[in-house]
Design a protein around this nucleic acid. Structure first.
Length: 638
RNA sequence: GCCCUUGUAGCUCAGCGGUAGAGCACUCCCUUGGUAAGGGAGAGGUCUCGGGUUCAAGUCCCGACGAGGGCACCA
């Protein structure tokens, strides 16, 4: 006699155990048609499974977030169904839901190509039209093993091995195809309509490159054609913001075959880079950092001492000379310790904050390179804070504030914070790791920030907080970071004299605000769609003459603006004004100044903004005031 | 590093067995025009590199290198 309470508080009594879909039917036939699953006391359940006890029930339809996820999940099964029909020898691994879609990892001798994807898509469409029931059944472990043995699904068998002996396993029958899943799933394929298989990729069983190579089929799925179309449109639009495309269009930088993963900065891009560097340098000086510069190549013995050689030897570029081996520095920290080690330090000197715009080289795997985001040569806005244990909290806290202050300047509204803790391969005692992880999580909690834990993802010498930003396709890139390190100072024998006149090792905090200039600029390009705020814009204003009569006036005004310290240039080509405006607009120059006979007479400029607004006629001093106000704002949105 | 895709003029791309094409950009000429493309002419390519198949190869096959999307990695 289950009593069912619905979200509006109304109660319904049933004589027998009853399924969600039957309850929906008793409410209304259109609700029943739309029912995808039930949520009983906050736990999702298949729509066709009976409910025995008194429960709170929410009927899930495609309007619910959970509904879309179930649809996506069922689409993965449906793709499985189609794949097995076309390629019966394929073995199915896992098929989970992801953001805006799903994938299925499969094992097959056959190498899938984009043409195969179309074939599979076609088959899925065929199956969809049959509106068949997805039938759930429950099996114990032994039964499940038999079923998947018979079907030669070795990956499913491996999954079953990890399941509790007494657990019931949900099996979903899509006609002749059987999948195994926690569920729930849609009761009928009529709920599965709007999808597209998007891409193929390689993957590894259980995400481990030592395991079997699998092939991953990605798809996206929605609850209406409109949503699907909008999604595809959105991706298309986002791709236009790709920093590599804009970088080419606006001549910011290039990369070429002879130096993969290393950047040739062009005048425009290098201007942005320099402005950023100056901006950070000023901030560091204000915050009591001391800037230094250390060597590019350092004898391998130092990297052996620091522990890098053992762990990263293959990832370093090396060079040999006179029977010595040097590593091109992959990071700055060992060098910074060398600077710290010069001269005796007292506890009174701490904290010492050594900063460097350090150019580092890392031989990153070829497949990981990605425009400016992942490169082999990058420059960090790096610094190492040498302090006592007692000073950690405050330093970390101050640093977090600094990161937010800087990021706010660029208008980022989504900063993802993660805390990465001790990895399996590490140096340092458990006690030290406990202390370090505690210090970082405390600092975050004290600020009331929300953050995610990433167990096992820390650096080999210490845990870290990561500040990540998203690119145009929502991919996450770590930018800022702060890492607690008790080990490096010991290994490299950094010491200070404490209040009891005893030598002690300082703690070292590795930290970067932007991370690398390369990556950060990549993010900025996509953030601004190449329309840089005026303080960063390589060219801030361009002057266009209407006719040759106005050329000299343009040159004269341009010279004055330049001398005033603004980045101004002219376009005096014999072209119509509309043409030149179009070109400047496409070059994303924030201000376009037009000088014709009228302006020439009263020594003024007609100014137009990048978005096409006519800002009116400006005298030079008015222009300076106006530009100054824009520059002050930087990239802030609030 | 792994899987799929891909590499043709400065850029974007077409050509997919018979000896290279478009638009834009560039050069020159005409045009001096007031807020997102005025007109004409011209120049420009050992089709990434190295092998192979073929009478004949950007075009098919193999390999290398680069790039794109994922995976793995990320001090």
């Amino acid at each position: 006699m289950p009593k069912i309470t619905l979200p509006d508080g109304s109660k319904r009594f049933y004589k027998e155990p009853i399924s969600t879909i039957e309850i929906a039917k008793s409410i209304g036939s259109s609700l029943a048609k739309a029912t995808i699953a039930g949520k009983i006391n906050n736990v999702l359940i298949d729509a066709t499974l009976p409910i025995y006890k008194d429960s709170n029930l929410v009927i899930i339809t495609s309007k619910d977030k959970e509904g879309i996820e179930i649809i996506r999940h069922s689409f993965a099964h449906l793709v499985g169904h189609a794949v097995k029909q076309i390629y019966p020898e394929v073995q199915m691994a896992i098929g989970p839901v992801i953001d805006e879609g799903f994938y299925y990892d499969v094992f097959s001798e056959h190498r899938f190509t984009p043409e195969d994807l179309l074939k599979i898509e076609e088959r899925v469409n065929k199956l969809i039209k049959q509106n068949y029931n997805v039938v759930i059944s429950q099996a114990n472990k032994k039964e499940a093993i038999n079923i998947f043995k018979e079907r030669n699904e070795i990956f499913k068998l491996r999954i079953i091995e990890g399941i509790d002996d007494n657990a019931l396993i949900n099996l979903y029958k899509h006609q002749e195809y059987i999948d195994m899943c926690r569920g729930p799933h849609v009761p009928n394929t009529k709920h599965l309509r709007y999808f597209k298989l998007t891409k193929l990729s390689g993957s590894y069983w259980r995400g481990n490159s030592q395991n079997e190579s699998l092939q991953r089929i990605y798809g996206t799925a929605w609850t209406s054609q409109k949503d699907l179309d909008e999604y595809l449109k959105r991706i298309e639009e986002a791709e236009k913001r790709d920093h590599r495309k804009i970088g080419k269009k606006q001549s910011l930088f290039h990369i070429q075959e002879e130096s993969p993963g290393m950047i040739f900065w062009h005048p425009n891009g290098w201007m942005i880079y320099q402005i950023l560097e100056k901006f950070i340098r000023d901030i560091l000086l204000k915050n009591n950092y001391l800037e230094i510069k250390t060597p590019q190549a350092v004898d391998k013995s130092l990297w052996e001492k620091s522990g890098h050689w053992e762990k990263f030897r293959d990832d370093m570029f090396t060079t040999a000379s006179e029977s010595r081996i040097y590593a091109i520095k992959p990071m700055n920290c060992p060098c910074h310790v060398q600077v710290f080690n010069q001269g005796l330090k007292s506890y009174k000197d701490l904290p010492i904050r050594l900063a460097e715009f350090g150019s580092c080289h890392r031989n990153e795997p070829s497949g990981s390179l990605h425009g400016l985001m992942r490169v082999r040569n990058f420059t960090q806005d790096d610094a190492h804070i040498f302090c006592t244990e007692e000073q950690i909290q405050e330093e970390v806290s101050k640093f977090i504030d600094l990161v937010f202050e800087v990021y706010k300047t660029f208008g980022f509204d989504e900063i993802i914070i993660k805390l990465s803790t001790r990895p399996s391969k590490r140096v340092g005692s458990e006690d030290i790791w406990d202390k370090s992880e505690e210090a970082l999580s405390q600092a975050l909690n004290n600020k009331g920030l929300s953050w995610q834990l990433q167990p096992g993802e820390g650096a080999f010498y210490g845990p870290k907080i990561e500040f990540s930003l998203k690119d145009c396709l929502n991919r996450l890139w770590q930018c800022g970071t702060i890492q607690v390190d008790f080990s490096m100072p010991m290994r490299l024998d950094a010491t200070f004299v404490d209040v009891n006149n005893e030598k002690k090792h300082p703690v070292m905090l590795h930290r970067a605000i932007l991370g690398s200039f390369e990556r950060f600029i990549g993010i900025l390009i996509e953030q601004y769609e190449g329309k840089f705020p005026i303080w960063l814009a390589p060219t801030q204003i361009i002057l266009l003459n209407i006719t040759d009569r106005n050329s000299e006036k343009c040159i004269e005004l341009n010279k004055q603006i330049n001398e005033k310290g603004y980045r101004s240039k002219v376009d005096l080509r014999n072209e119509k004004i509309g043409y030149k405006i179009r070109e400047s607009t496409m070059q994303r120059i924030p201000l376009i100044g037009v000088v014709g006979d009228k302006e020439q007479t009263d020594n003024s400029i007609s100014i137009r903004s990048l978005d096409g607004t006519n800002l009116g006629i400006f005298k030079l001093n008015e222009l300076y005031t106006f530009m100054e106000s824009l520059i002050d704002k930087k990239g802030r949105v609030h």
